[in-house]
Amino acid sequence: MATLKDVAKEAGLSVTQTSRALNDHSDVSVATRERVKDIARSLQYRPNLSARKLVSGRSGLVGLVVPRTYDLASDSMFIEVVSGLSSEFARRDMQCVLHVAQEDEPIIPVYKRLVGNGALDGFVLIDPSHDDKRAAFLSKAKVPFVVHGRIGSDPGHAYFDIDNETIFHDITRHLTDLGHRRIALLNGVEGRTYVAARTRGYLRALTDSRIPPSDAIIRGGAMTESLGLIATVELFSDPANRPTAIICGSVRIAKGVYQALQGLGLSIPDQVSVFAHDDHIAQMKTEAFYPALSVTDAPMRESWQPLAACLDGAISGAPLSDLQVIGSHRTILRHSTAPPCQ
Rank of each mutant, 00 (worst) to 15 (best):
A2F: 02
H174G: 13
D132L: 11
P306N: 07
T166S: 15
R33N: 02
E302T: 15
S86V: 02
A254S: 08
A2S: 00
M94T: 09
S83R: 13
T172D: 09
G256F: 02
S303K: 10
E234H: 10
S316D: 13
S153N: 15
I183D: 07
Q324T: 04
R46V: 12
H180V: 12
G313I: 14
D163N: 14
A222H: 13
Y70K: 06
R20Y: 07
R200G: 00
A205M: 14
D24V: 05
H329F: 14
D154L: 14
S316T: 10
V251R: 03
P339C: 07
R173I: 10
D127P: 07
V97A: 04
A308D: 13
T296F: 15
P339F: 08
T18N: 01
I268K: 00
V325W: 03
D297A: 10
T16M: 07
F236L: 04
A158Y: 10
T199A: 12
L333S: 11
L61E: 02
I183P: 02
S214H: 06
K142H: 14
Q283P: 06
L72S: 04
S76M: 14
S56K: 03
F123Y: 08
T232D: 03
D154M: 13
S153K: 13
S56N: 10
A240H: 09
A308V: 06
R41Y: 00
Y194K: 01
I218V: 12
S209L: 14
R52W: 01
G249E: 06
R52P: 03
P144N: 12
S336T: 12
V110L: 02
H25V: 07
V82S: 08
E287N: 06
I126R: 04
R58K: 15
G152C: 12
I332H: 05
V36E: 02
Y45W: 03
V115S: 11
A101P: 03
R35W: 01
R173L: 14
H277Y: 10
G60W: 00
T193S: 09
Q342P: 06
A8H: 02
Q95H: 03
V110Q: 02
Q324N: 07
A8R: 04
R204M: 12
I39G: 00
R330Y: 13
D177A: 10
G265K: 02
L235Y: 06
P291Y: 01
D270A: 10
A288M: 11
L4N: 04
E10Y: 01
L185A: 13
